[in-house]
Design a protein around this nucleic acid. Structure first.
Length: 303
DNA sequence: TGTTGTTTAGAGCCGT
DNA sequence: ACGGCTCTAAACAACA
């Protein structure tokens, strides 16, 4: 399993979907958000394949950004003019791209199956019972109506169905047999670094209906403490621009799962990953306050 | 005018 | 065959 490093694929098309590529780009940035042009740059920088036919794949990429709920648009601050908004990953999607799921479904399935076998082997060797995999049924998914895979409903209620019938919760860390794409982040684990632009310490208690007074984890299991910018004075909560449908019922609090952070996360994907991300001046920190901490839990029309 | 963002439509592949 | 998913194309609007 090659890592998505520079020149890894030469001119070959990488086995990553546009969604994955976009997520990689966003996660590679220290601020966990990038303008469209920087996303383009990231992809072209790492995958020579995408240095050609730019109009084609960039159109597709824009389509994915707009279409998938897991990408949220963050407006620029007035004092940081420029074209377009910043794009960030919905916090729940951070989990989605863990455990090798940057890969396209077929590749990811293969990967997950392999991991399942490893897991089973290990458990068999130790005589350990299979753990009861917890699944989070938040009651927001609607089995009767199709939601595209990156709709928030699917993301937050998601569990990985293993080909062998096993179900791995997204919160369930998997053994890393080989480097995972999510480890490319320049500042460590995506979970550990959290979503610095998403929440600020001053907002959490009052703005969120999700009970977390005694928890260090906020909505979607995102740890709060690491999200607090030192010296950050402006609220750092993105406001999804997508139209939010009529009041989404507040999500029941997750059982505050503590994500296991891989302590041996390798350094950044490539020496340029941080350069690419930091080459831009500090991204806009949304000055708006989030009146409803739950992101737009809508799903776009059936594709 | 070029870029960015949204939306619609359809083709192709794959698994069930 | 069908559904799910990804990719591509295209049209259009808004904006710098």
């Amino acid at each position: 399993m090659p890592r998505p490093g520079r020149n890894t694929y030469s001119d070959q098309k990488p086995p990553y979907s546009y969604i994955s590529l976009t997520a990689m780009a966003i996660q590679s940035s220290p601020e966990k958000m990038l303008p469209l042009s920087e996303i383009y740059k990231f992809i072209m920088d790492r995958f020579p394949y995408y240095r050609e036919n730019t109009q084609r794949w960039q159109n597709s990429l824009r389509h994915n950004l707009s279409f998938n709920d897991c990408f949220i648009k963050i407006p620029r601050r007035p004092d940081q003019p420029g074209k377009g908004s910043f794009w960030a990953l919905h916090p729940s999607c951070g989990d989605m791209f863990e455990n090798g799921s940057f890969l396209k479904p077929a590749d990811a399935a293969q990967y997950l199956q392999q991991q399942a076998k490893l897991r089973l082997s290990a458990l068999a060797a130790t005589g350990t019972h299979l753990p009861q995999m917890s699944t989070y049924n938040l009651g927001v998914s609607q089995p009767s109506s199709f939601k595209h895979p990156f709709a928030i409903e699917n993301i937050i209620a998601r569990e990985y169905k293993m080909p062998g019938g096993l179900a791995f919760s997204t919160m369930q860390p998997m053994p890393a047999a080989y480097p995972l794409p999510n480890q490319l982040t320049t500042v460590g684990s995506s979970i550990g670094t959290g979503w610095p632009h998403m929440y600020s310490s001053g907002m959490i208690d009052t703005a969120t209906p999700i009970s977390m007074a005694s928890s260090e984890y906020g909505a979607y299991g995102v740890p709060i403490k690491p999200l607090c910018h030192g010296g950050q004075t402006l609220p750092a909560i993105p406001v999804p621009i997508k139209p939010t449908p009529a009041a989404v019922p507040a999500l029941p609090a997750l059982p505050a799962p503590i994500p296991t952070i891989l302590s041996n996360s390798p350094p950044s994907l490539s020496p340029t990953s941080s350069q690419t991300a930091t080459s831009q001046s500090s991204p806009a920190t949304p000055s708006e306050t989030l009146t409803s901490p739950a992101p737009a839990l809508h799903s776009v029309a059936v594709h």
